[in-house]
Amino acid sequence: MNKLNSFNLKIPSRSANESFARVAVSAFVSQLDPTLEELSDIKTAVSEAVTNSIVHAYKNEIGSIYISAEIYENRSIKIRIRDTGCGIDDVTKALQPLFTTVGGERSGLGFSVMQSFMDYLKVSSKPGKGTTVIMKKALSLKI
C-alpha cells in the first residue's frame, strides 16, 4: 500500500490542545477530500483519544502526547495517539461501553466512540509506562 503523506506532532497534555489536536488531524486528512461525516467521525475519535491521555494518563501532571497520522493511496488513514502516562491495568475491561474509572461526569463511552466511528481500534498499554491507541479508517471512494 502506497503511503502518500504523514505527520508527527508532540503536544503537552493541556486541555486547550484537545481542539488543536482534532483540528490538526482533520486538516491533514482533508488532503483525501473526505465527506463531512467522515471528517466529523475522525475528529471525534481523535478528541476521545487525546482527552483520555489528558484526563487519565496524565491525571495530576502535564506530559507529552504524540500524535501521528498517515494517509495512503487507497484512501485509508492510520492515526496513532501515544502517551507515557499511567497506563491501563486491564485494557479489555477499559474498552467495555460505560466502563470508567473516574466519577463525576465521564460517561465511559470514549472507546466506544472510537470503535464505532473508526474501522479499526487497537489499544496497547503497560501500567506505569503509557498507552498507545491506533485507529484506522477507509474513506469512501470518489467517483
Binding site: R22, S40, T44, S47, R106, G110, S112, V113
Partner: peptide, 13 residues
C-alpha cells in the same frame, strides 16, 4: 459544531 463523549457526560449530568 462539535461534541464528543465529554458532551455526553454533560448531557447525562
Amino acid at each position: 459544531s462539535f461534541m464528543d463523549s465529554s458532551g455526553i457526560g454533560l448531557v447525562m449530568g
